[in-house]
Design a protein around this nucleic acid. Structure first.
Lengths: 140, 140
DNA sequence: GTATATTCCTATTAAAACGATAGGAATACC
DNA sequence: GGTATTCCTATCGTTTTAATAGGAATATAC
């Protein structure tokens, strides 16, 4: 139950990888690393990772540079990147059930009683994901 | 992200239905209701619900009686039925990633740093699901 | 003891999501 | 011009999900 798609696992590992590069030389302007390099280091299918990084870029979490010596780097410090931003960028909002916001709308039976329960679950998950940053993750 | 399969949503609604029957006549020995009746009341595909109730019975959450006037009823009071039992009966343990217990085993790159993060997520979810009972759900 | 209403068991199917691959265009450096 | 990279779009195979189907076993009612 609640297994996390590889896309998100890969995305987080890629960001961890980039964050550790930054952590290795503090203060210095962060250096780009190519998608293929990250993929190789992390054991992620290279072409697949390209698409994942594109999604992270669209969400404003990484910056990219094209051409030779291009690559990706974090768009902000790891300490300011909340895990919920990453998860939402890759998989969308945490949404246990479809009718999360439609109070009293469901036509059928006792559908709307569990709804409140699911809202609580979303809050528990969002609470955890919102309280952790990428920095917390690389520091274990 | 983290959408709950219809199987689990249906299962919970069926249990809510049974719990409300019990709640309607407190103290009395609980009455069985047939799968088809629950299905109709809750707008759940009837044959599909049969399989779900079979799973809940295998997990010891409901009791069944066959033959005419048969049906299902809760195996224990709603106040003693934790939501995590229900979820685990239908979908298995909460397990964000496969390597949850394999500390330091992953061969690849930074795989094991996020692992701790995923363990925390599991604990957050389990904590919520373990703190709520079926009774909490029917009381909103 | 026959009809009926139910649970129970096993298979099958249709559709969606997931995980990954592929070809090639655009861009930037040397 | 050559090369290394991001970027864009399409496709494909597998697995999971959601549901359906047929019928066997069992208990009650008359």
């Amino acid at each position: 139950m609640f297994s996390v798609p590889t896309k998100t696992q890969y995305g987080i590992r890629a960001l961890v990888h980039l964050a550790r590069i930054d952590a290795a030389s503090p203060g210095a302007p962060s250096e780009s690393e190519a998608s293929a390099g990250i993929a190789k280091a992390e054991g992620i299918p290279s072409r697949y990772l390209e698409g994942i990084l594109a999604q992270l870029k669209a969400a404003g979490l990484v910056l990219s540079e094209r051409g030779k010596h291009g690559g990706y780097r974090l768009a902000k410090p790891a300490s300011e990147m909340r895990m919920i931003e990453i998860v939402e960028a890759l998989e969308g909002e945490v949404k246990p059930v479809g009718c999360l916001d439609d109070s009293g709308v469901c036509a059928q039976g006792d559908c709307c009683l569990p709804r409140i329960f699911w809202v609580g679950l979303k809050e528990a998950i969002d609470g955890y994901l919102g309280s952790r940053t990428l920095r917390d993750v690389i520091e274990g």
